[in-house]
């Protein structure tokens, strides 16, 4: 009788582990899809393939900057979430080098526009600080 109980407990634990893995894997997939969407948006606007906001006045100029900025920041945000979960699934921590690589790759997307570049730099720094504190808590 006690032996049977132990096996049941072990089954529950392995089921829970499988469920967590499944959940983490789904998060990896969802995050990478979102990141892909924002990366495409970033290519369109930051590579200046879409430029119809230019010359339409100050408001559209600001909207153009916001789109470029948000696309890069959310790309970085979702990629870090996805890579973080991926690393957790493989049993390794998300190391500093990967975050630095993502930071540089995201920042360089804004190289055409100095305003976007400046705001992206600070935005990325804020996201990293935010994630660091979330992780700590």
């Amino acid at each position: 009788m006690p032996k049977f109980k132990k096996e049941k407990k072990r089954d529950n634990r392995s089921n829970k582990k499988a469920f967590n893995e499944e959940f983490a894997y789904k998060t990896v997939i969802k995050s990478v899809i979102f990141a892909g969407f924002f990366f495409t948006l970033s290519i369109l606007f930051n590579m200046e393939i879409i430029t119809f906001f230019v010359n339409l006045g100050e408001l559209w100029f600001i909207i153009d900057i916001i789109i470029k900025l948000v696309a890069i920041l959310l790309f970085f945000f979702f990629m870090v979430i996805s890579i973080g979960n991926y690393k957790e699934l493989t049993g390794r921590p998300l190391d500093f080098k990967l975050i630095l690589l993502m930071f540089v790759l995201s920042l360089l997307q804004a190289f055409r526009d100095p305003i976007v570049f400046t705001f992206t730099f600070f935005g990325l720094a804020i996201i990293i600080i935010y994630m660091f504190f979330v992780q700590e808590s």
């Binding site: 990478v32 892909g36 290519i43 890579i83 997307q109």
Partner: peptide, 17 residues
Amino acid sequence: IIFGTSGMLYVFYIYRI
């Protein structure tokens, strides 16, 4: 170069997933 490198790394990451 920038967007190409990012794109390739993105595709490589999906492959790893």
